[in-house]
Simulated assay, not measured.
Amino acid sequence: MNREELDPSVYGWKLPEGWRLYAYERGGEPAILVGRFDVGEGCYALVEAHVHAPFNGPTRVTVIAETTEAANQSDGVTVEMMRGVPLGEARRVITEWVHRIRAEVSPEDSPAPLPARVESPRDYAMVAREYVRLMDAGERRPIEVMAQAWGVSRNTASARVRRARNRGLLMQMGSTTGRLSAKLTEAAEELLREDE
């Protein structure tokens, strides 16, 4: 794969220290985030995430000895080095930046905006629609995506989805793949048809 490193400042972004942004190909859009972490004894870890993956965690973690001498000193990559990869911190950065990049590069994939206060049945039907759309797109953490996009806490986004369900606008369904799915009710579809 011929990756091209991108300058985040071109997009008005300043990534956290140690993080870089790449396109899949020359002239492409932002697609890959890579963070570099020192794991000791002359070794470092690269944590990679793909912006359009159907999940928000790393897609690859690689521990590398910077020199042959470093590898000889530690006798190669050790369990301690692997444990030293700060995956929690990496996931936090990835989640924040993947949502931000998706919203700017692929706004059609981001949750639709909501009114400042979600109160009416129509507002809750819109919440239900976004939840279903994200689930259908394979998003494993729809509540987090919605919270990030709407600038609210995860608890607030979760409460809105719960209220939509309690109002009879959203049905949670089982799935043969072991993952839950969701479906709009007729009442929600009727409320949303009023927009058309």
Rank of each mutant, 00 (worst) to 15 (best):
V10C: 10
W13V: 07
K14R: 12
G18A: 02
G18M: 02
G27C: 05
G27M: 07
G28A: 05
L33F: 08
L33P: 04
G35E: 09
G35K: 10
D38L: 00
V39D: 02
G42L: 02
G42D: 00
Y44D: 00
Y44S: 00
A45F: 04
V51I: 11
F55Y: 12
N56E: 12
N56W: 14
N56P: 09
T62H: 06
T62G: 03
V63A: 00
I64Q: 07
I64S: 08
T68P: 09
E69L: 13
N72G: 13
S74L: 07
G76P: 06
E80V: 03
E80M: 08
M81H: 05
R83W: 06
R83H: 08
L87N: 00
G88I: 07
R91H: 14
R91D: 14
R91I: 15
R91S: 14
V93R: 13
W97Y: 06
H99S: 09
H99C: 10
R100N: 01
R102T: 06
A103G: 10
A103D: 09
E104M: 14
S106T: 12
E108W: 14
A112R: 06
P115G: 12
A116V: 10
P121D: 01
R122E: 12
R122S: 15
Y124M: 12
M126C: 06
A128M: 01
D136H: 09
A137E: 11
P142Q: 02
V145I: 06
W150H: 07
G151F: 12
G151I: 11
G151D: 09
V152N: 05
S153W: 01
N155L: 13
A159T: 11
V161S: 07
R163G: 02
R165K: 15
G168R: 02
M173P: 06
T177D: 10
G178I: 06
G178A: 05
R179P: 05
L184Q: 03
E186L: 10
A187M: 15
E189G: 06
L192M: 04
E194Y: 07
